[in-house]
Amino acid sequence: MELRTIIIDDEPFSRQELQHLLEEHPELKVIGEANSAEKGLELILREEPDVVFLDIEMTGMNGIELAETLHKIKKPPAVIFATAYPDYAVKAFRLDAVDYLLKPFDEEQLAQTVKRLLQKGHTAKKPSGPGLGKLAVQTEDRILYLDPKNVLYIYREGRDTYIVAEQGTYSSKAALKDLESKLKDYSFFRVHKGYLVNIEKVEELVTWSASVFQLKLKNSKDHVPVSRNYIKELRESLEL
């Protein structure tokens, strides 16, 4: 299950930008947004989200005041301040904010914020082990059911997604983020904006330069690109 997330910001562009960036993090699912603290409070009380991304400088009640109010409710969400103003950082952390994001948003900083959120224990309930289901792949005349453990990697090219398994390569209309969500209980890791890799199949990390990395996989001649933004977390996942 994803962490149910609400964005509260009086700037439409900021809300859209943050929602777009959060699409790269399937652990979080945006379920609503509000353009004021007052409307945001109504939304929080109605939806009971797990996480709130909260602007500070807004007309009427500001973000700090809303965060103070949230401490009084029965199930307060985790708060991440997202603002153009660095001056409120001390107040924010006194209110137990998970993080303090500065605009314009940086993808790597946001990734670290999500990681910090999960490390602090703000995680949705997960099943005790991997599911027993198969990954369904639609072909022209049949539906194939792949064991996720036999999938090497998945990548996006144009409007299509390709699933590369030990027994062959299959196309899918599913979005990469949807497949990432379905495979969250297996050993898949996002290594690039357009690639998911089964880290159990990783054999080598090849370093071409300070910013160019590739993965060599077992039983495959393919090399999978690794974005610099993901290299640190990938190594933490791979190494003892």
Rank of each mutant, 00 (worst) to 15 (best):
E17A: 14
G32V: 12
P76I: 12
F105C: 02
L205F: 01
A175W: 02
P225T: 01
E236N: 10
L135W: 01
A97T: 05
V212C: 06
E27K: 11
M61H: 05
L102M: 11
R94F: 06
Y195K: 02
L3W: 00
K125M: 10
I56M: 10
A82Q: 12
G133A: 12
M1V: 12
L41C: 10
R46M: 11
K72P: 05
Y153M: 04
L3R: 13
E140N: 12
R15E: 06
D99N: 12
I73N: 08
E203S: 09
Y170K: 06
D50P: 04
L110F: 13
G121Y: 03
I231L: 13
V30W: 03
T161G: 15
V90Q: 03
E236W: 00
V90P: 00
I199F: 03
Q214M: 12
L238Q: 06
K149P: 00
A82E: 11
A136L: 08
K218D: 09
F53P: 12
L146H: 09
K29C: 14
A67R: 07
K216F: 00
Y155F: 15
S209D: 11
D185Q: 13
I80V: 15
H25Y: 13
I31D: 06
K126A: 15
R46V: 07
I154D: 10
Q119K: 14
E140T: 13
E47R: 14
F53V: 11
L41G: 08
L118H: 01
V202A: 01
N62L: 14
P49K: 07
T139D: 01
L3M: 12
E200Y: 00
L238R: 01
R142G: 00
L41Y: 13
V51W: 07
L196G: 01
K120Y: 05
N62R: 07
K75P: 00
K218M: 08
G133K: 14
R94V: 00
G32K: 10
R156Y: 00
K91H: 07
L45N: 07
E47W: 09
R94A: 10
E65Q: 15
A92M: 04
V151R: 09
E68N: 09
V137I: 15
Q138P: 00
I7F: 09
D106A: 05
K103H: 03
V226N: 03
D178V: 09
S14G: 05
K125F: 08
K177C: 11
K182S: 14
S181A: 15
R228Q: 06
G121D: 06
T139P: 06
V114H: 02
G129A: 15
T139S: 11
Q16R: 15
S209P: 06
L70T: 02
K173R: 15
I80M: 13
T169E: 15
L95K: 08
R94M: 05
E157K: 14
L3N: 14
K134G: 05
G158W: 09
I64N: 03
V226T: 04
Q119W: 00
E166Q: 13
T5P: 03
